[in-house]
Design a protein around this nucleic acid. Structure first.
Ligand SMILES: [Mn+2]
Ligand SMILES: [Mn+2]
Ligand SMILES: [Zn+2]
Ligand SMILES: [Zn+2]
Lengths: 138, 138
DNA sequence: CATTTTGTTGTAATGATTATATTAATGTAA
DNA sequence: TTACATTAATATAATCATTACAACAAAATG
């Protein structure tokens, strides 16, 4: 994924005013590539910013998604996760250790039938199974 | 998708006791290939079965998913949809008309990197964009 | 038949998300 | 600078989907 050295500048260049909270939330997403939930972000950042509210996290993430600097990872139907890596990539979730792995796939050679003449804007590929670690250990 | 002529038999052969409610819910899913939400099923069937409760629909769908005769379609993060077609296929959602289309794709030639040695059990491919109809009309 | 198991339902609880209203911070025109 | 307007952050309350639980009904068992 893209290397971002200056978060306030990155936000500004995407038409987002870089408030303290917004910078911290983006920083968390960028540093931790763990596809966190709102709850995880809240748990972590409320230690640093005691006044931070979940509403602000929801507002901020909604804004980030609208401005295309964050994507929603919807691999599980009961939890919404977020990802600062907006490049096209897939997500694998291990049903044993619950870890989410990124992977790359070839969109060019993806053979799709029945969608001739359709405009394809966004493609999400989710795979579930058991990761290499868990296959060996368990 | 598979042609099912005898729903009670199909349920029985999948280790599900074919109660009236279960048969009606499966029948709805099988006849309407519209990937309905619980709400849609409830609206439709409560006209036929006035005593039907949403809890029963939730229970029934959870059972169907467990027994692998129904899959969850999770293309939108704020609504869970259900599909009686359990064969491997992808889902396209038109952002204009909101319609969900099925499509086929070639899993064999799907080039995936970074997942060597991972056991892949379930693959979900979601595409969003604008359908052919909406491209022409609008 | 009596007893146990399974299925259905209504109500209440939970938990994630959103709406609303208030307050704080920032920007800008005199 | 002050005064006013805009944007951001917050707390609280509301909503909505889903689940838990308990009561009741149906069916299976023997
Ligand atoms: Mn990712
Ligand atoms: Mn389908
Ligand atoms: Zn694992
Ligand atoms: Zn359309």
């Amino acid at each position: 994924m893209k290397n971002i050295t200056n978060i306030p500048y990155y936000l500004k260049s995407n038409d987002i005013k870089p408030s303290f909270q917004r910078m911290k939330i983006f920083d968390y997403l960028y540093k931790n590539k763990n596809h966190p939930t709102v709850e995880m972000i809240y748990k972590e950042l409320s230690g640093i910013i005691p006044t931070l509210s979940k509403t602000t996290i929801y507002n901020t993430l909604k804004l980030f998604v609208k401005k295309n600097i964050v994507i929603i990872v919807n691999i599980e139907d009961n939890e919404t996760r977020y990802d600062a890596d907006v490049s096209t990539h897939g997500h694998f979730k291990c049903i044993k250790c619950k870890e989410i792995y990124d992977f790359l796939f070839d969109t060019e050679n993806l053979k799709i039938q029945n969608l001739k003449g359709f405009q394809k804007d966004k493609i999400d590929l989710y795979i579930k199974g058991i990761c290499k670690e868990c296959l060996f250990s368990g």
